[in-house]
């Protein structure tokens, strides 16, 4: 199982790179990701081939943003069983028949299951790629520019920082426990209560100290995000290019058209 603290730190480290994608302003990246998700979710439940060209967006971000594919897979991995469970349930409930071009008839449920898996994976990859290139601070500054209420952004920022802190404290407690319980597998049941209590108290006190440090450095009602300068031509081109491409993918069956052009028949 992946260490969540390690995943958070890796996201932060990845967001510090200086690639072409990292230099795109967070707001523009956020808008493109949002449009991508909206378009992906708007596809018909049986549109598998029509959705495939949308893969280009996460693929480009991963390559240009130098995001290790291993990181994406490892982060998504814990959720995959849940997606597959939903997809299989879908296959059993949808019993209508679906005829493939080759003449083979299969249950439409399996097509929609495949579409569901594809949709979920592409959405999660796009979100992860956004966070890994813009960083959490990028997300907060994008939300601030979109005039999302300060209260909501501050809550989100504190929650993120608090998760970090919870993980750190849990790491310290578990390490101290393991060092004094050699040869023991996991944490014994009777220690769960005291350790959870300790975890809560320690995290709470630490959070209080960090909050005091923030107050001492002038924190008022909201956390001021790191504003970058105004959007440049490249940022606007980024939005128009990708949104245009997504709309094309949504309106026209690109794989069908391509196969007609190249081999003279549809898929």
């Amino acid at each position: 199982m992946r260490n969540p603290r390690g995943a958070i730190r890796q996201i932060e480290l990845l967001s510090l790179k200086n690639t072409f994608v990292h230099r795109i302003k967070p707001l523009q990246q956020f808008i493109v990701t949002l449009v991508f998700i909206l378009i992906i979710t708007s596809f018909d439940q049986y549109s598998v081939s029509q959705m495939l060209p949308m893969l280009l967006y996460p693929a480009v971000i991963i390559v240009l943003g130098e995001i290790p594919l291993r990181f994406i897979i490892r982060t998504i991995l814990p959720v995959i069983p849940l997606i597959i469970l939903f997809a299989i349930a879908n296959a059993f409930f949808d019993k209508s028949e679906w005829v493939l071009l080759s003449g083979v008839t299969i249950s439409a449920g399996w097509i929609s299951a495949l579409a569901l898996v594809l949709r979920s994976l592409m959405t999660m990859t796009a979100i992860l790629s956004f966070i890994a290139t813009a960083g959490m601070n990028g997300l907060f500054s994008a939300l601030e520019k979109l005039k999302i209420p300060d209260f909501f952004i501050t809550l989100l920022a504190f929650t993120f920082r608090y998760i970090h802190l919870l993980m750190e404290e849990a790491g310290h407690i578990i390490r101290a426990y393991r060092l004094r319980s050699p040869g023991q597998e996991g944490i014994s049941f009777q220690n769960w209560g005291p350790l959870a209590g300790q975890w809560f108290i320690r995290s709470y006190r630490r959070a209080e100290r960090i909050h005091s440090a923030m107050l001492c450095r002038g924190l008022s009602e909201k956390i001021h995000q790191n504003y970058h300068d105004r959007a440049k031509l490249v940022d606007l081109t980024w939005i128009f290019f990708w949104c245009g491409y997504f709309i094309l993918c949504r309106l026209f069956p690109i794989p069908l058209l391509l196969s007609k052009v190249t081999i003279g028949t549809g898929i």
């Binding site: 510090l16 960083g135 601070n137 920082r161 960090i210 440090a213 923030m214 450095r217 002038g218």
Partner: peptide, 20 residues
């Protein structure tokens, strides 16, 4: 560790001036 909470050193140093 109680005082440093931003993703980078620069962000942390800029936290106070931004709040000002």
């Amino acid at each position: 560790d109680d005082q440093l909470f931003c993703p980078t050193v620069r962000d942390d140093i800029a936290f106070g001036p931004r709040n000002m």
